[in-house]
Amino acid sequence: MRLGRNLLVRGFTLLMVVVVTLLLMNVVLGATGFSDRMLNALINDQVRIYRQGLVQTIQDPTELQRIVNNYKDVLIEAYGLDKPWPMRLPQMIWRVMTFDLGKAKNAQTFKGSTEIYDLIAERLPKSILLITTSVGISALLGLTIGTKIATMPGSKIDRFFSNYSAFSYALPTWWTGILFILIFAQYLRILPPGGMYSAPPPTEAIPRFLDLLFHAILPISTLVLALSGSWIYLTRTMVLNTAQQDFVNVARAKGLPENLVMRRYIIRVAAPPIITNIILGLAGSLSGAILTETVFGWPGMGLLYWNAIVTVDEGLIIALTFVYTLIYVIARMILEVLYVFLDPRVEY
C-alpha cells in the first residue's frame, strides 16, 4: 500500500537523522582530536587503577612497569587508539546505538550509580513529566482560546492575543523563568525558587504530591507562557482560514446545527496543521527544557546536560546529545503516523 511505503520512507529519513547526528558528532570529535584526548584520559585512568592494584603484589619496579605497559597496550588496542580516528567510527557508532554509553564524571543517580544509562533512566521521566504537562496545558489553552477568538476576529481580545503571541516569541523562556523566581520566590515568597521537592521531601503520598505541585507551578507556568502564545495564534489563524472555506457555507446551507458545523467542518479540517505544530512543539520542548530545568534546578535530563557542560564531561554530553536526538526522532515519527490518520489528503 502506498501509504505504508511512504511511512517507511519517512521512517528511513528519520533514521538517517539519527545516523547523521552520530556521524556528525563522531567526525567532529575525531577531527578536532577530542576523541583521542578523551580515550587517552580514559586509558590512563584505567592504567593507574591497574597499577595501584598491582603495586601490592609485585615489588620489582621494572617488572611492574613491564606488566603495566602490557596492559596499556592491550587497552590501546581495545579502544582503537592505535588507529586513526576514522577507523574507530564504526565501533563508536555501534557502541552508542547499543546504548553502551559509559560513565559520567561527576553525576550520580540517587542510588549511587554513575552509569550514564542509569542516570538517563532516572532523569528522563522527570523531564517528561514537566514537558508533557506544560505542552498539554498549552495545547488546551491554544485550542480553546484560539477557536474562541477565531469567532470574533478584529475584536479587542483578538488583538490582545495577537500581541501576546508576538511578545512570547521575543521573550526568552529562561529569562521569564528567572523573572518568575525573582518575583514569586524572592519578593513575594509564595513559591519555592527551584527543585522538584522540598528537602527533605514529605513521605506520604498526598503531601508529597502537593509538594511536587507546589514546586512545579513556576516551571510549568514558564513553559506554558512560552508555548501558548504561538499556539493560540496558530489555532486562530487556521480556524479562521478554514471557516471561510466554501464547504463550511455548504454545511450551513444544509441546515446543520452550528456546533456540528464547528466540530466537523471547521475544527476537524483545521486540525492537522495545528496538531502537527503541537507535536513539533512537544519535540522541540525537549530541548527547551534544558534551559528551564537549569533555571529551576529541576532534576531532569536538561539539568543533567547543564551539569555536563559545567563539569566538562564530554562522555555525558555525547551520550545526552544522542539520546535527545533519538527521542526527538521518535516523537517526529509518531507525528508522521498520526498525521496520516488525521488528514486523508496526505499524499507524498
Binding site: Q245, D246, F247, N249, V250, A251, R252, A253, K254, G255, R264, Y265, R268, V269, P272, L342, D343, P344, R345
Partner: peptide, 20 residues
C-alpha cells in the same frame, strides 16, 4: 434549510469537506 431549499454552490471544487 435543505428540506425546502437546497443549494449547489459555485465551484463544486471546494464544496466538499476534504477530510470526510
Amino acid at each position: 434549510n435543505w428540506k425546502k431549499i437546497s443549494m449547489v454552490f459555485q465551484g463544486a471544487m471546494n464544496s466538499l469537506n476534504p477530510v470526510i
